[in-house]
Design a protein around this nucleic acid. Structure first.
Lengths: 67, 67
DNA sequence: ACGTTATGACAAGTGTCCTTGACACGGCGC
DNA sequence: GCGCCGTGTCAAGGACACTTGTCATAACGT
């Protein structure tokens, strides 16, 4: 227990990356990362897979289905 | 070893479901399931999560990143 | 005070996911 | 033969992911 939280923002911050830095690692724009972190939309499946991979988590751990 | 294959079509067929049946389980149209199975497009993240859940697999197991 | 960085958010445009409705084909049962 | 089912695919439209460009604000160092 006491694992690190699995929301995208926390994972990014624990690596001390800016949104812009993560965006270029993922090959998307900074606005896209910001929109995902602020919940304005879901990532596409390929982006979700890349995000999960870079943070060593499963897609399910980072992006839970609501209800 | 000798685990069942993890592509969507095989998972669906092992349950003896038609595309239409899976579609209504997932709440999408038959054409959507068909397009995903035939590789015409990727599912959205929420649909990928529901598909993984219904087949007892992780998203990563069913939908691998290409290259 | 000034410049820089990080973040949040908008607008307009493009492409993709997903819809309904349709059509064609092959396999099967009758 | 006929009908039914499962599948593949198209077209037109709506909703959403993602783009570039821009603006605003707060925090920081000098």
């Amino acid at each position: 227990m006491a694992e690190t939280a699995n929301d995208l923002r926390t994972l990014r911050q624990s690596r001390e990356w800016s949104q812009g830095r993560l965006a270029q690692e993922m090959g998307v724009s900074r606005q896209t990362i910001n929109a995902i972190e602020t919940g304005r939309f879901d990532p596409s499946l390929p982006l979700a897979l890349r995000l999960a991979r870079v943070f060593g988590r499963t897609v399910e751990e980072i992006f839970a289905l609501k209800e």
